[in-house]
Nucleic acid binder design. Structure first.
Lengths: 178, 178
DNA sequence: TTGACATAGTTAGGTGGCTAACTATATGCT
DNA sequence: AGCATATAGTTAGCCACCTAACTATGTCAA
């Protein structure tokens, strides 16, 4: 799932950033503004998607789990694999599956070969829920992306890719000297 | 604060999307891929920022609250204003402030004029925490953004802005017919 | 002036994240 | 065969988000 933080309504403007730059000389105002804008656009879109899904009682991560199951030829997977593909902990996945099970959108059976495993399967009701949600989702994504021409979209992808390659700067020991 | 969801490790590839497109003819594969990539880059950067902050015991939203306070000339604000500027509910802000107060990074005094109000103030300890965190934050943002030339960064901002203007497509009643 | 309405903040209860610690089952080495 | 280690899943307890309902205080107009 996509898990963001910071729903910045109020990104600092250049004036405020200048104040911070006075105290922290490392500050590069343009970099910070670009960075925060990128985060904000992603965060707002993510919130928009959520509110769309909420209209179908599909809170956040549960939708993604259903999609992961639908991708599989036998509509099945295990909690561990789902957790890995969704990028959440196994503990979180337990909670998501509990909720989906309560609404009977998935079923669970104990594994035969490996008795530690549990097999999660998309039910007919789960598939029906996706059939209800997905057309509107795709329509909205199309509408959103019509903001860009095809060339612009490719351009955006390539710019994002350049940034994405440096995503590890925030980790423990980035090489900070260029 | 920036609040994302979905930490998609596993964005569907073109082949999987084709499978979905067979069932849901609305699907425009390029649009969906661009959309999910944008969300993923934002989400991963947001997670990176978080893990950086976690190294300083500054969990997520609390950092943003400290920054909002530091912006103010008197280092002070009220829970309501902070909630609005951070884009969270007043209830959430109550919880964040409780945590910050426990660590003495802020102080709270009852308002004199309006006795419903509470005045939140950045303490010296809170300022010291920011002084510890911010230089490394700015360094990392700079390093990240050096992935783009100045022209590319401006280009990115303008592309994001075009998408941002359509952020309401996910809301209740978007005009879906062009 | 008093009663209706609005605003500030908190509390309760739900979701969705996390880590750490636990149980149960496999696996694999000696 | 038996023990160490690894893996699957759950539980407990924390943080950060939400809405709805509540208390206390202000405001304003009849």
């Amino acid at each position: 799932m996509l898990t963001y933080m910071l729903q910045v309504k109020d990104i600092p403007n250049a004036e405020i950033l200048q104040k911070f730059a006075d105290r922290y000389p490392q500050t590069d105002i343009k970099s910070v503004m670009t960075f925060l804008n990128l985060l904000r656009v992603g965060s707002d879109l993510s919130h928009g998607l959520n509110s769309y899904l909420a209209g179908y009682d599909l809170l956040q991560g549960r939708w993604w789990v259903l999609l992961l199951l639908m991708r599989e030829d036998d509509l099945s997977s295990t909690p561990s694999l789902l957790a890995e593909k969704a990028g959440v902990s196994r503990a979180t996945m337990t909670g998501l599956l509990d909720g989906l099970l309560r609404e009977k959108l998935i079923s669970r059976v104990h594994g035969r070969r490996d008795r530690r495993q549990i097999l999660i399967r998309l039910t007919a009701k789960g598939q029906a829920k996706l059939d209800e949600v997905m057309p509107g989702y795709y329509q909205r994504v199309n509408l959103l992306m019509q903001a860009l021409t095809e060339t612009e979209a490719l351009n955006l992808m390539s710019l994002l890719e350049k940034i994405y390659q440096r995503r590890h700067v925030f980790e423990d020991d980035p090489i900070l000297n260029k």
